[in-house]
Design a protein around this nucleic acid. Structure first.
Lengths: 220, 220
DNA sequence: AGTCTATTCAATGATTTTGTTGAATAGTTG
DNA sequence: CAACTATTCAACAAAATCATTGAATAGACT
């Protein structure tokens, strides 16, 4: 049957896309690349895996057209092909978190990092910043901040936070964000700030989520 | 390292979602279920696979919380858990088609079904229906129409089309849709209608795409 | 209660995926 | 052009996936 064959081919092709991120390490790669382009070596460190394996995973992602690469000097730089990939990651997270949330509810665990749960969303941020003057800090590595950040955010990478506490006011609310819902950098930042008697809240959304929101607004 | 372990678990969980649809048959199952709930037996026929295998695939989807099931008399009915699943499928198709389109461009093939390419989108439909009075027909099985359809659409399942041609006018533009971009039912309908000298165009989007559009509009 | 039937479970072998190590490649830089 | 280096290729063994067949289950009807 010709129809069936075409149909099969199409579903085959579609599942190749999801197969590409059906592996935890590849999912992580895509998530890291959502922030900014990186070389194979950097990625290999980030996901703690041998370069050879990292390279292979990247090739799988490339063949599914989720990432692209170009050469820069000695390095090969990988990046996300376009913003539909961001959407894909965002939807998968949405679906994945339903499950994770349920597991946590069942186990009753996750108390150790409970302050991670006390976080606001992008919408909260926008609403809140209209009422009061808040300080928004981006605690990702500086490179990622430079590659793009939420307007009015100040870059204070987590690693530098301890030394730069004097730049922050104690009479204002500080909101910290990082790579998005999966990332713990902002949670660490909040922990430190609260210890030092700052008023600080974590925002779970990151730059990617902000960017996707812009897309939506522009469309309508 | 505790952090790394949590991180790994999270990515593991996220990739379980994508793993669930990283198989062509499971992708097809989700796509079919996007239209309407079905029993295991019906699904098994639809995707031409043994009941045992179909059941197993459904369980994978269920454990990823992409589908849910309940009993109705002798049958177990499977359905999509919620509309985020529709979003997932929609994004995956968007990404998958980039690849498919490129392959077709490279091979230069696909001439046999060329009229599939001459199709309009949901936006085109909306714009066009403001200017002229068009006839919109839904050629999916009647069950799926009953489960939900685009407003003002008339149900004429593909199987009945030949007998019901007299219900359609020749002096108006007829637009046919089915399950969405992957589905060939509307293409078959267009072929028949054009042979019989109707003015008929295929719309590649289906009810699911319409529904997702409503969500977006409601959000802003 | 007993039969019937849709669905699920279990076991199997063929095939694919995974991550590693060590060698090969290609391209840059001095 | 020679040396260097980041990246990719190749080969391997362990582990996971896939679709099938045949048996088991669980619930619905008479």
């Amino acid at each position: 049957m010709a129809t069936s064959s075409i149909k099969e081919q199409v579903y085959q092709e579609l599942s190749r896309v999801t197969h590409a991120i059906s592996n935890p390490k590849r999912m992580e790669l895509i998530d890291v690349l959502s922030q900014k382009s990186y070389s194979v070596e950097e990625l290999s460190n980030e996901i703690t895996m041998s370069m050879a394996s990292t390279s292979q995973h990247l090739q799988v992602l490339k063949s599914a057209k989720l990432v692209d690469s170009y050469r820069q000097g000695n390095f090969i730089i990988y990046s996300i092909t376009d913003d539909s990939v961001l959407k894909l990651v965002s939807v998968v997270k949405e679906l994945g978190f339903r499950k994770i949330a349920e597991i946590e509810r069942l186990i009753g665990d996750f108390k150790a990092d409970k302050n991670i749960l006390e976080s606001i969303t992008l919408d909260d941020l926008l609403a809140r910043s209209k009422k009061e003057k808040i300080i928004l800090i981006d605690v990702r590595p500086e490179d990622e901040y430079k590659a793009g950040h939420i307007p009015n955010a100040v870059s204070i990478p987590l690693a530098q936070l301890k030394k730069r506490l004097n730049e922050l006011p104690k009479n204002r609310t500080i909101i910290a964000y990082c790579r998005g819902p999966l990332c713990v950098m902002s949670a660490d930042a909040i922990k430190l700030l609260n210890q030092r008697k700052f008023t600080a809240i974590r925002m779970e959304d990151g730059y990617v989520e902000w960017k996707l929101k812009q897309h939506e607004i522009n469309k309508n």
